[in-house]
Amino acid sequence: MKVIFLKDVKGKGKKGEIKNVADGYARNFLFKQGLAIEATPANLKALE
């Protein structure tokens, strides 16, 4: 799953980066902790 990092995550990505991560890791950790959001077209446009 492609995500946009909202904060730096050690070993995974830095704020503003778009990367592929495992679906479960994204849903169960990154999204719940507020560290990333899904890289949807609307979210990508908002990032610009």
Results as ranks from 00 to 15, higher is better:
45 K>F: 08
19 K>A: 10
15 K>Y: 06
42 A>M: 08
19 K>L: 11
18 I>Y: 03
40 T>D: 07
48 E>G: 12
32 K>M: 13
43 N>F: 06
3 V>A: 01
35 L>K: 04
28 N>W: 10
48 E>Q: 13
18 I>L: 06
11 G>H: 07
4 I>R: 03
25 Y>N: 07
12 K>V: 15
6 L>Y: 01
38 E>I: 07
3 V>Y: 00
43 N>L: 06
32 K>Y: 08
34 G>A: 08
35 L>N: 02
17 E>Q: 11
2 K>P: 07
21 V>D: 02
26 A>T: 09
29 F>N: 08
21 V>E: 03
33 Q>E: 14
5 F>V: 00
28 N>F: 09
38 E>Y: 05
4 I>N: 01
19 K>R: 12
6 L>H: 01
12 K>A: 15
16 G>R: 03
42 A>P: 09
15 K>M: 10
7 K>A: 12
27 R>Q: 11
3 V>T: 01
31 F>N: 02
30 L>H: 01
18 I>P: 01
1 M>N: 05
14 K>A: 09
33 Q>V: 10
3 V>S: 00
47 L>A: 08
33 Q>G: 08
16 G>T: 02
41 P>Y: 09
17 E>L: 02
46 A>Y: 12
38 E>T: 05
23 D>L: 14
8 D>S: 09
7 K>N: 07
38 E>S: 07
40 T>N: 08
31 F>P: 02
36 A>Y: 00
8 D>M: 03
11 G>F: 07
37 I>V: 13
18 I>K: 02
3 V>P: 00
30 L>T: 00
32 K>I: 14
14 K>D: 06
6 L>M: 08
3 V>F: 00
20 N>A: 11
40 T>P: 04
43 N>E: 05
12 K>W: 15
5 F>W: 02
42 A>Q: 12
7 K>L: 09
46 A>L: 15
44 L>H: 05
9 V>M: 03
44 L>I: 15
19 K>V: 12
11 G>Y: 07
1 M>F: 08
12 K>P: 01
3 V>D: 00
29 F>T: 11
45 K>I: 14
29 F>Q: 09
46 A>H: 12
21 V>S: 02
12 K>E: 13
9 V>L: 07
13 G>A: 12
45 K>M: 13
10 K>M: 14
14 K>M: 12
14 K>Q: 11
25 Y>F: 11
14 K>H: 11
45 K>P: 05
33 Q>A: 11
31 F>A: 02
13 G>F: 12
27 R>L: 14
4 I>M: 07
25 Y>G: 05
38 E>L: 09
19 K>W: 08
27 R>W: 10
43 N>Y: 06
27 R>M: 11
6 L>D: 00
41 P>A: 12
44 L>V: 13
